[in-house]
Design a protein around this nucleic acid. Structure first.
Lengths: 342, 342
DNA sequence: TTGTACGCGTTATCAT
DNA sequence: ATGATAACGCGTACAA
């Protein structure tokens, strides 16, 4: 590992001169000197220490992302968006899984702060009435005071700018799709209890049902965000007939779990029952699931871009989503034996 | 941001003393002094600069992972394994997508080297006869000379230790499963051309078929590693009857693509044709796909552990895999009209 | 047991 | 146009 002083020595110039040439300063340098420095750097395979650089700068060129779980496609798409932008801008991505624990978020934020990250992205949803939120908010404030940018990709009260999707509208719109297909009794498999995103999605669902005069037909059942939750919830639904006209799941993976339970029970989708999810992850495409497409990649890239060259501020940007009808939803069969339709 | 000097000043001691108590040195310190330093640190919310620390250490506490694409579950599971271990050990994970490009691997390795990473993990497969490999190998060697540990999670000639799976055996074993079910004509949808993993898996497949005296019945068709590839390859298979008894896909996602093409064509799985994949990612479980389970999480965590506290060396550890039969494979129907069985 | 002083590699400031 | 030097924050060898 050759350092700047060695390059300077080989080139026969002062370190400051070498620095100016190698760091792309606009300081005037004679062509001859520049060439010598460049040659020396080349010869020594010089590569500047990002550590030393960060020491004398307001921050490093590290971009942090806090995800609930990178092994969840929702977050891996976001991470991909972040990294693409970061890499193109000469930065490096730091990643941490926080498993939806606010205390973990705090400690990981601190860890990234210790490296003087250029910024930290909060990709996951927060909890409703989380007693730890004040502590997190305080840690975030401190980080910001120190010059670390922060961005949220979910509705959270953290102070920085945020790039989000309107989860109420997302659920509202997909529910609308179901309702407009003639479905009346629709079951909603909820997300993990206590999470803001779960709450919003349920509100959106309920809201559209109420507007359609179907408040009585709306059925919310506890679920989660994974396959098992969808499978189990559907089994419970199956155990208490009559079957709803449609099932709306809190996300795609839950919907796939529902689909699988339905298939095992020998119930035809969408002939006997419609199923829809939200997020539009790859799995949704694989199984032909009707869902709502979210600009996840864009959220990640926008967040990274903000950190790298954005202006300060705390504006919230609501990105648009799109219902994508596929093969798991269809018009409600006219002869369905659904009570309450009298 | 309070630094060590401020803590020392508040505590009324020298920086070296503060450093010793705060950095957990084994240097003897009087209980009284220790308490005062701790109190001062607490009061000032002191958190050591990881940057400055790394400057005076042989390396930072950053663990790098180079993946082909984090939005590919294969790699996100590995990344999860890496991060869990890294976090528990007080390190932070750096992640970079390299899109299977060796030149990108080189430049990302360099970027992580600039941060004096404790180590860098190469998670992806290499290419056969890759002209860039020497350059990468050289970069890796230099990194190692500098004290950066490197680990491979695929068979590559990079010099460090590696934690791998025997892809020939993986393909051999799942082919064995198919053959033992009575299948004779089996089509193999290959992985991306030129990748080592593709080659090994094909070899394993061909090897088991040959041993079963089924060399003539083995059919290799070009594919890839994604859904589209599996779908398209299966369509091509469908266009040229007779249908094989079974389809083995280079990985799970390809198998799902095949499954979907088969379903659209109205061909029953596993009644009319068996389908199997490799990797055992979550999708495989969702669709009940027969596949081979790989210790991906373990590979990631072992790699991280090696970087953090492993011994030097270049040993190759071959981890075991396991065929997991599910619902997409079944015994070959006795009355199948497969020619060549005469 | 505690303190002093140096070095890590870079950029910026202030001479020259 | 170039050079010398301070500063970033920490750990540590050496001195007391």
């Amino acid at each position: 590992m050759s350092s700047l002083v060695e390059v300077a020595r080989v080139a026969g110039v002062a370190v400051s001169t070498a620095s100016r040439v190698l760091s792309g300063s606009d300081h005037p340098i004679s062509a001859k000197t520049r060439a010598r420095v460049l040659a020396a750097a080349e010869e020594l395979e010089y590569s500047p220490s990002a550590l030393a650089r960060a020491m004398v700068s307001p921050h490093s060129r590290l971009v942090g992302v806090l995800v609930s779980d990178i092994d969840n496609p929702y977050f891996s798409v976001i991470a991909r968006g972040v990294d693409d932008v970061a890499t193109r801008a000469g930065h490096v991505t730091m990643l941490s899984n926080v498993d939806r624990r606010t205390t973990t978020e705090i400690s990981r934020l601190q860890a990234m702060r210790d490296y003087r990250a250029a910024g930290v992205i909060f990709a996951g949803s927060g909890h409703v009435d989380d007693p730890e939120t004040p502590r997190l908010a305080k840690a975030v404030r401190r980080a910001r005071e120190q010059g670390i940018r922060t961005v949220s990709l979910a509705v959270r009260d953290l102070g920085g700018p945020s790039f989000v999707v309107d989860n109420r509208a997302v659920a509202y719109d997909i529910t609308d799709h179901l309702v407009s297909l003639g479905h009346r009794r629709v079951a909603f498999i909820e997300g993990p209890p206590g999470m803001t995103v779960s709450l919003h999605r349920r509100e959106g669902f309920l809201s559209r049902m109420a507007e359609a005069g179907l408040a009585e037909e709306a059925l919310c059942v506890p679920g989660g965000f994974d396959y098992q939750a969808g499978h189990a919830a559907t089994l419970r639904l199956l155990a208490r007939p009559p079957l709803p006209d449609a099932i709306l799941a809190a996300n795609d993976e839950v919907a796939v779990g529902a689909l699988s339970a339905l298939r095992q029970a020998g119930i035809a989708v969408p002939k006997e029952i419609s199923v829809a999810g939200m997020d539009d992850l790859r799995t949704a495409e694989f199984v032909g699931l009707t869902t709502v497409s979210l600009p996840l990649y864009e959220m990640g890239s926008l967040a990274a871009r903000h950190i790298i060259d954005g202006a300060d501020g705390a504006a919230t940007t609501v990105l648009s989503h799109r219902v994508v009808p596929r093969e798991t939803t269809a018009r409600r069969p006219p002869a369905a034996c659904s009570p309450g339709a009298a």
